[in-house]
Nucleic acid binder design. Structure first.
Length: 560
RNA sequence: GCGCCUGUAGCUCAGUGGAUUAGAGCGUUGGUUUCCGGUACCAAAGGUCGGGGGUUCGAGUCCCUCCAGGCGUACCA
């Protein structure tokens, strides 16, 4: 409906002044009205008339011709402030977001933890953000395919295999020891969720110290490719299997459902072939390696195939774009979500791709997000360097148990705490996670929203009126204010989809919940003379909040 | 050195080229309970929007420059 109003004002401008102008209504402070536009100011120089005069003319015209308008006033240098009739607010509150991606298939790659390595904070963040982006596309009508990509070969794998081997004295029957509920290594209490990450870190440290261990690790790396050592094969297979089993557990808990998983061992040969095929035209030899000279496009040179003839990450990623194209030839858009550190890298990779498959390169978009850190700043006790994802999840879960000891939905609450904290920030900047703040009901948190929903549900359950009808004649100020906020939902979702920024929805939901809590505090619903109308508002509010939380992937339980 | 990103209240963050007063939350100070879940609500204090120029009738927002921090910058992923 908002777009109809935009168009109506555009038409009015054209009729009055004979000028084509794009009008986008904005949401001003509530005291000024429901919508505002600065179109008169933008027209002033074009028409060579004072902006206030244009505004006055337009205001009168618009008020008379366009329905839904209760009041159109001119303010300041020439703003048009529009107050809608209550029926129009109701219509807005009932409107659905426009589906700009209807029928389009969209690929989104995100998450990407590597087997035989820890799943760390960054993986957790990128997984939640990536899933939220997917949900935005889905709300906009797209057929979304969630993809992940994992490094299943390479030195990191060898380091972990070495450390696991040492831990079990290369007796592969003892691998089952590492599947116990509680595993004690070096005085650390570990679980199947954290043991591989811990051992990887041990292997990585041993490798850095050079010496005998490093030699062995290099030998293991070769064996993994050659598959010529039974014990290495066994540990590798076990490690990959256990890693994915753990990742799947986390993804399931986060309600993230991937459609397809790609492995580096698959993309590697395809990428290599692709680079060799375009050698001389796109890529060139330099110092024994095959590189792409990004300087011709204002970028920098990157190695695609190293001097040993092995594909680097660049070539593998090139191979991955090809794999995705084979699997999903009709995809209209392919998005890759990673941390910002890879921004320049992707520019070069896509620049190279554009030279031999411009169409695919044009469809492929890299999206970068910032880094996630913890307020405590403490070093991880388990890896010594980076925090494993599981630590944040465990800590938050523990905090929820303490804060809500009697809740029957502790799992939903802790997931809301984690996800909402991630999603309320604009994607791109670094974010700081504070466990206590994420869990609290005092402030802008996931649990606050869940509580605000639970209170509304509680009212709805207690009322004797089964299907409250919305009679919107003569709303009281608090009622109107709530309805006005509800009417912003559809356009907020549209904006979030348009910019691929879920935080717009997160912030809106918080404002909505505040509006409701304030309404709740000052207005009785059950037993009041206005019960039916108020109940209908509460119902709309609960529906909107629930829908919004689900759009973000945040659980929305009935009660807490 | 070069490239990209970031810099808004003590802290964590929103902010669409315009309207007296740049907004939230936490923290601080002070209030509210014959009530549908008070884990809530109401209010106050707290800002030269990193500095300096410029464009404009108007800049947190656009341009230039400087400062500070982060990331990247050829064989890691």
């Amino acid at each position: 409906m908002k777009t109809e109003l935009d168009a109506a004002i555009e038409a009015a401008v054209k009729e009055l002044f004979g000028v084509e102008v794009k009008v986008e209504l904005t949401r001003p402070d509530e005291q000024f009205g429901d919508y505002a536009t600065n179109v008169a100011l933008r027209l002033a120089s074009k028409l060579d008339k004072p902006p206030r005069e244009i505004a006055e003319t337009l205001a009168q015209h618009v008020k008379d011709r366009i329905s839904h308008m209760k009041e159109v006033s001119v303010a300041g240098p020439g703003f048009l402030n529009i107050t809608l009739i209550d029926e129009a607010l109701l219509k807005l509150a009932e409107s659905e977001p426009v589906q700009n991606y209807k029928g389009q298939q969209i690929l989104v790659e995100f998450g990407d933890p590597n087997p035989l390595k820890a799943m760390h904070l960054g993986h957790l963040y990128t997984t939640v953000v990536g899933d939220a982006i997917c949900r935005l596309f889905e709300v906009a009508g797209a057929d979304v395919k969630r993809l992940s990509y994992h490094g299943d070969v390479g030195m990191h794998v060898a380091k972990a295999v070495w450390a696991i081997g040492e831990q079990i004295s290369w007796d592969t029957d003892r691998l089952q020891d590492l599947e116990a509920d509680e595993i004690r290594i070096d005085g650390q209490k570990l679980t199947i969720k954290t043991v591989i990450g811990y051992l990887y870190a041990k292997g990585a440290q041993a490798y850095e110290e050079e010496g005998h261990a490093a030699e062995q690790i290099r030998a293991i790396n070769k064996s993994i490719y050659a598959k010529d050592q039974a014990d290495v094969n066994k540990i590798y297979d076990w490690g990959v299997k256990r890693s994915f089993a753990y990742f799947d557990l986390v993804f399931k808990e986060l309600s993230v459902n991937y459609d397809k998983r790609y492995l580096e061992s698959e993309s590697s040969p395809i990428g290599l072939e692709s680079v060799q095929k375009h050698l001389g035209k796109v890529f060139e030899k330099s110092e024994g390696a095959i590189v792409y000279k990004g300087e011709k496009k204002g970028l920098h040179t990157r190695v695609f195939v190293n001097s040993e003839g092995l594909p680097t990450y660049e070539a593998k990623d090139l191979g991955l774009t090809e794999l995705k194209k084979r699997d999903f030839p009709n995809a209209g858009k392919s998005i890759i979500i990673t941390a910002t550190e890879q921004t320049e890298y992707f520019r070069v990779m896509l620049a190279a791709l554009s030279e031999f498959d411009a169409e695919l390169a044009a469809k492929t978009v890299h999206m970068a997000h910032g880094f996630l850190s913890l307020t405590s700043g403490k070093m991880s006790s388990r890896t010594g360097k980076v925090h494993q994802a599981q630590e944040l999840l465990d800590d938050t879960q523990e905090a929820v148990k303490q804060a809500y000891p009697d809740s029957k939905v502790q799992c939903e609450v802790y997931l809301a705490a984690v996800k909402y904290t991630f999603l309320k920030n604009r994607i791109g900047g670094d974010i700081v996670f504070d466990v206590q703040e994420s869990v609290t009901l005092e402030g802008n948190s996931g649990p606050y929203l869940q509580y605000a929903l639970a209170r509304a549900n509680s009212i709805l359950k207690k009322s004797q009126i089964p299907n409250p009808k919305s009679q919107i004649d003569s709303l009281e100020p608090d009622e109107r204010s709530l309805l006005r906020k509800l009417g912003e939902y559809a356009e907020t979702v549209e904006k979030a989809v348009d910019e691929l920024m879920p935080h717009h929805i997160a912030i809106y939901l918080y404002e909505l919940a505040q509006k409701f809590n304030s309404f709740y505090e000052h207005n009785r619903v059950i037993g009041d003379a206005r019960e039916e109308i108020r109940l209908s508002l509460v119902q709309k509010y609960a529906d909107t909040l629930k829908n919004g939380l689900e759009t973000l992937g945040v659980p929305a339980p009935e009660s807490m």
